[in-house]
């Protein structure tokens, strides 16, 4: 199984390459990718230079162009595809049907991966995209159980890639409107879930209150580990009780299931976190590479990974979905 690692900056890309990534995924500095944060991502010149660096070490670079095109501004997304191909990207990670069609038509030789943002969670959906647009690999949503991942991998006529560590999106990816509801900006159209421009933290005595736009998302008590200010991981009052309705502030850790995923025929393991720092990329890549090489889910580095996690807690998410 390939290890697919995130890079938000050239420095993070080099760390990932040097520490054992088989491929690194990154994006341009604009809303064409789902991590459109201030100061993050790659200029064209940087991408060209870093692709050369990665290729010199036999590591692939995948370029995420995985937001949905805005009507009337399609040229921005099409130019991103053209440039990524021209600069030597080994694959494009795409979600928008129109953009996938454009890529298949203009750059038939370019390897096309289906982004998790496409929300393709069944064999018919993926099979159609493989047949119509020559998709080579589908990144599966984080709402499937291990059994479902295995069944889907058997059924679809392309490779599958799954998330094994990092931020856990529990929604229908590519279709979630929670961020848009609160801020007018979404990961799907603007590349930002809970955009920093709308996030505020304030102290309230010993507590810390997180706000997204006009909404209070959470209130963390003294010393309580914090999370991102996303509505899906906010604390709500429902039926007279306070708590997390959708999901807790927590990160995905499916490293205990590497063997199962391998046996299921999954081609690639993805680490979430292009918005994270170099220290995160280095720690996580090193640890997962070690486990892949040792062939065990040995938890020596589990504590270090937990400290890197949202809310300093991890979950196996839907992979271990026992309620169905």
């Amino acid at each position: 199984m390939q290890l697919i690692c995130p890079a938000g900056t050239p420095a993070a890309l080099r760390d990932a390459v040097d520490l054992g990534a088989d491929a690194v995924y990154c994006g341009f500095r604009d809303e064409t990718n789902a991590r459109n944060f201030p100061g993050l991502n790659f200029s064209r010149e940087e991408l060209e230079r870093e692709i050369a660096y990665a290729h010199s070490r036999q590591v692939h670079v995948l370029v995420a162009i995985n937001t949905f095109m805005r009507a009337g501004s399609e040229a921005l997304w099409e130019r991103a595809v053209d440039d990524a191909v021209r600069l030597g990207a080994d694959a494009l990670i795409l979600a928008d049907l129109g953009l996938i069609a454009y890529t298949a038509e203009r750059h038939p030789q370019a390897r096309r991966h289906l982004s998790v943002q496409a929300g393709a969670a069944n064999a018919d959906h993926i099979g159609f995209l493989v047949e119509a647009f020559g998709i080579k690999r589908a990144v599966l949503p984080r709402v499937l159980s291990l059994t479902e991942v295995a069944a889907l991998t058997r059924e679809v006529p392309c490779e599958t890639e799954v998330f094994v560590f990092g931020g856990l999106c529990v929604m229908e990816e590519g279709r979630c409107s929670l961020s848009s509801y609160a801020t007018g900006l979404s990961p799907n159209m603007h590349g930002v879930c809970s955009p920093a421009s709308h996030v505020r933290y304030r102290k309230d005595g010993e507590a810390m209150v997180s706000m997204l736009g006009d909404f209070t998302i959470n209130r963390f008590g003294a010393g309580e580990a914090a999370g991102y200010p996303t509505i899906c991981k906010g604390r709500f009052t429902a039926e007279g009780r306070d708590g997390y309705v959708f999901e807790d502030p927590v990160s995905l850790d499916a490293l205990a299931h590497l063997d199962t995923l391998h046996k299921a025929g999954v081609s690639a393991l993805k680490i979430e976190g292009r918005q994270r720092g170099r220290a995160y990329v280095a720690q996580v890549v090193k640890e997962i590479r070690r486990r892949l090489q040792s062939g065990s889910g040995a938890a020596d580095g589990a504590e270090a990974l937990r400290r890197m996690s949202e809310g300093q807690r991890t979950t196996e998410g839907s992979y271990d979905r026992r309620w169905r």
Binding site: E224, G277, A279
Partner: peptide, 13 residues
């Protein structure tokens, strides 16, 4: 210096 991850230090308060 990039020795620590900002998000992780923030999560840990």
């Amino acid at each position: 210096e990039g020795r620590l991850d900002g998000d992780a230090e923030f999560f840990g308060r």
